[in-house]
Simulated assay, not measured.
Amino acid sequence: MKNKKILLSIGVFVLAALIPLVLKVPYHLHILNLIIIWAILGTAWNILGGYAGQISFGHAAFFGLGAYTAGLLKLHLGISPWWGMLLGPLVATIVSLPIGFICFRLRGPYFALAMLSLGEIFRLLFTNLQSFTNGAKGILIMPAVISKVFYFYVGLGILALTILVTYLLVNSKIGYYLVSIREDQDAATSLGIPTTLYKNLALIPSAFITGLAGAFYMNYVAFIDPRIVFSLPNVSIMLILVVMLGGPATIWGPTIGAVIYISLGELFRATLGSANVLVFGLLVCIIILFVPNGIAGEMERVKSWLQRRKIDVPGGEKDELLRSQ
């Protein structure tokens, strides 16, 4: 079963790599690049929020730190922002360590509020440090003339790496501990699991990948300001919606959610004008209400139900074999 899933995942990436050969319109490639960026961000958030059950409203802080690291290298040192792809994730990870040490002592809504304030703190900080960050004016870079196809393949490579890291993590001892913490933290603690340590072990890759996506975003759009990259509604909350739509605690859920969220958002914006926000918001609410496990989560549930039904049907050597297993 695992081998089939791995082969299927490889097949999906191979097919995705062929898309630019068919879609050559710059606008379509731009939409694909946005989908990839949000799929990376959603997968990163899913490690902490989906598998560990720690609902974070502050991932905009890590995203903004990664983006600003790339931008500040160009602004102050004249270094290519592509080096921010290395330094941005490291900065986000380093900042996440004391944050995790403090905030993971809180639970439930207290943790969520603490993380929510984190993004706002960085937004205000980077807005007021005008001599260092250029304040509300933001940072504009003049990127080299690179086609959107190049960004597509770079983003696709990052997404593949992100999904691989997530798969290896959740199928390790750390992943099993994270799920136990999500299901019942008190029971996990009583069994001797150091819950704060393992929640931090989920935060570290989550912050690292989010910072990496932020640095990639800076290179792609070539402009950032604190209101964009440290935004609560447009980054932190949108991340959660992407994961909820696709399916929390699933490998491919955030990617599916990103495809739905970005595609429908652009479609409604083009066809409905100013009413697109209302219609799209209602659609998201309906999906969350009637598909609480997300698209991928419901597919897994239906698949499990069919497997159980197949085992419960009497007769046949195959059924007997499945029953014995």
Rank of each mutant, 00 (worst) to 15 (best):
Y68T: 11
V284W: 03
P233M: 06
L245T: 02
I181S: 02
Q185Y: 09
V149M: 07
K303D: 04
S172M: 05
D186Q: 13
G211N: 03
L212I: 12
G265C: 06
R105I: 07
A136K: 12
H30F: 15
A92P: 03
Y198N: 05
F126S: 04
P81D: 03
P20G: 09
V154Y: 09
F62I: 08
V284E: 11
R107V: 06
L18Q: 02
I288M: 13
L124V: 14
L289I: 11
I295M: 09
G53R: 04
Q185S: 13
T127R: 13
L41N: 08
A258L: 03
W45N: 15
G49A: 08
V235H: 02
E298V: 07
L140D: 11
E317N: 08
H30T: 13
F150K: 10
N128G: 00
Y177W: 12
L113P: 06
A215K: 02
I102C: 09
L18I: 13
L18P: 00
D225C: 06
L232M: 07
K24Q: 14
Q307M: 13
G316K: 02
S172D: 10
L191M: 15
M1F: 14
Q325W: 15
L282D: 05
A207I: 05
G297E: 05
S56C: 12
S96A: 15
L239T: 04
G155T: 08
S236W: 01
M142H: 12
R323F: 01
E317D: 13
V14A: 13
N128V: 06
F268L: 09
M1H: 12
I287P: 00
F104K: 06
G138S: 07
L191R: 14
I228P: 01
G297N: 03
I79H: 06
K173D: 14
L164Q: 08
A60E: 05
F152W: 01
I55Q: 13
I181N: 03
N293V: 00
L201F: 15
K148M: 05
T271L: 05
G211S: 10
A275P: 00
I256F: 10
L245P: 00
Q307P: 00
L90H: 10
F104N: 08
N171S: 11
L32C: 11
N134V: 00
V145T: 12
T196V: 11
H28C: 00
Y27D: 04
V284Q: 14
T210R: 03
H28F: 13
V12G: 00
G64K: 12
A114F: 06
Y217R: 01
Q130Y: 14
S172W: 07
I55C: 07
F101V: 10
A222Y: 12
